[in-house]
Design a protein around this nucleic acid. Structure first.
Lengths: 230, 230
DNA sequence: ATCTAAAATTGGATGTATCAGATTCGACGT
DNA sequence: ACGTCGAATCTGATACATCCAATTTTAGAT
C-alpha cells in the first residue's frame, strides 16, 4: 500500500467500517451505563463472549478501551471490574472533556484562519436555525460538527484522539442534554461565546468559555441522574 | 474470585506482572520516538511480529494503545502508520498532560485532607534533599511520586487512567528533563508553588501552577530536540 | 483443629489458522 | 492505449485451542 503523506489524507481514507470489537465496545459501555452490570461487578471474558455471541478477541479489545476510559478496571490474570461509581465516572469524564476541549479551543484561538472562522460561523448559524426550529436531531449534528471543527482547527492530533476516547460519553448523553429547550438555548449562547473568543484570537477566553460550557452540561446531566438504573 | 469493593483495593491487588503486550508497546513507542520508524512509515502487524519475535496478538494490543496516544494512526484493513511529526506529538502530549494534571491539581486543592497535605509536604522535602544532593535518580522517583499523590488525592479514577496514557512520554523524557541542574531547581520551585496552592485550598491556583510547570517542561524538551534521530 | 503442600480451578494472555475487507495486478475486449 | 472485471495479494480481524499466572480447594500430617 502506498504510504499516505499526511494525517489528513489518512482521515480522508477512513471508511465507515465498524468492527465487531467496535460494536462490542459500544454495547458494553451502554450496558454498564444503564446498570446492566453493577458497580464493582466482575466482567469475565469468556462469559461476556458467550453472552454477546462473539469470541474473546473483540471482548479483550473492548475491555482495553473501556479500561482507558476508566469505566472498567482490569487486573492481569485476575479479571476486569466495573467501576464502583458510574455517576462519578460521568462527572469525571466531564471534567476531562472540559480540560481537553478547552485546550482545543485555546489552540484554535491561536491559529484559526479567516476561512476557518467563516466555517465556524456557518455552524453557529446552523445551530441558530435548529434552535429556532426546535429541530433536536439537526441540533445534535450541528453541535457535534462545531466541536469537531474546533479540534480540526487546533491541529492537535493526539488531543483529538484523547478527546475521542471520552467523546463516546458525550454522544450517549447529548440527546438528553439537548432535550431540555432551555439547555439548548443556553448551549447556543455558550457556543457563541466560544466562537467570539476564537474569532477575537483570545486563547484564554476560548479555553475558559469552552470549559464553562462543558462543565455546565456535565452538571445538568448529573442533576438529571443519567447512568445506573436510569 | 471475590469481588473487590473499592477501586483502591483493586489498586493494591495489582501485581508487577508485565505482559508481552506491555513490553512490546514500550519497545515500539521507544523505537518510534528514537526514529527507528520514520514519520508516516507503515507498520505491518505480521512484519512487526516477526521483527519482535512475538505473535500478532500483542502487536495488535500495542498498536491499539499507541493509537490512543496519537503516536500511530490505524485504518481498518489498511494498516497502521507512524505519526507524521513526532516532535509535534511530544508537544501535543505536553499540552494534554498540562490540561489533565492541572485538572488533578484543581481537584486535589478542593478536597485534600490535612493528612494528604502532610504526605505531599513529605514529598517536597524529599525533592529538596535530592536536589541539594544532586541525586537525579531519587529526584526522578520523588517527582513521579509527587504527581502520583496529587492524582490519588484528586480521587478521579478516569483522569488517572487518561493521564496514565500520556505519562509514558513523561517517563521517557523525565531523565532528560532533570539532567539539567537549573531545570531541576526550577522544577522544585514549581512543585512548591503547586503544593502551596493545594495547601491553601486554591483550586484555580493549583491548576494554573501545574499547567505552567508541565508546559515549561514541555518547552524545554522541545528545545532539547527530543525525538526523531536523537 | 490447624497447617502445609499439591492439585484443581479460575480467568487472562498468546499463538496460529482462517476469515474478511481493500488494493493491486493481469487478462481481455474495444 | 485504455477501460473493465475478476483473480491474486496484502493486511487487519476474529475464532479457538492452548499456555500461563493466581487463587481456591483438597488431602495428608501433626
Amino acid at each position: 500500500m502506498n504510504r499516505p503523506s499526511k494525517n489528513r489524507e489518512l482521515e480522508s481514507l477512513k471508511t465507515n467500517y465498524k468492527s465487531i470489537a467496535d460494536v462490542t465496545c459500544e454495547k458494553l459501555r451502554k450496558a454498564i451505563l444503564e446498570g446492566v452490570f453493577s458497580p464493582g461487578e466482575q466482567l469475565k471474558e469468556r462469559e461476556l463472549a458467550t453472552l454477546m455471541g462473539v469470541s474473546t478477541t473483540p471482548i479483550k479489545a473492548a475491555l482495553q478501551r473501556l479500561g482507558m476510559e476508566g469505566l472498567v478496571t482490569s487486573l492481569p490474570m485476575r479479571g476486569s471490574f466495573v467501576a464502583e461509581n458510574i455517576s462519578a465516572i460521568l462527572t469525571e469524564v466531564g471534567l476531562i472533556r472540559a480540560a481537553l476541549e478547552g485546550t482545543a479551543a485555546y489552540l484554535a484561538a491561536m491559529k484559526a484562519t479567516d476561512e476557518e472562522i467563516t466555517t465556524l460561523q456557518g455552524q453557529i448559524e446552523k445551530m441558530e436555525r435548529c434552535t429556532a426550529d426546535r429541530d433536536i436531531g439537526r441540533a445534535i449534528e450541528a453541535n457535534t460538527n462545531f466541536h469537531e471543527i474546533i479540534h480540526q482547527i487546533s491541529g492537535n492530533h493526539s488531543l483529538q484522539q484523547m478527546t475521542g476516547i471520552v467523546r463516546q460519553y458525550d454522544d450517549i448523553t447529548r440527546p438528553q442534554a439537548l432535550s431540555d429547550e432551555s439547555q439548548m438555548v443556553q448551549g447556543l449562547q455558550e457556543h457563541k461565546a466560544i466562537f467570539e473568543a476564537i474569532k477575537a484570537g483570545d486563547p484564554e477566553g476560548a479555553d475558559a468559555s469552552m470549559r464553562a460550557h462543558v462543565l455546565r452540561n456535565t452538571r445538568f446531566l448529573k442533576q438529571q441522574g443519567l447512568g445506573v438504573g436510569k
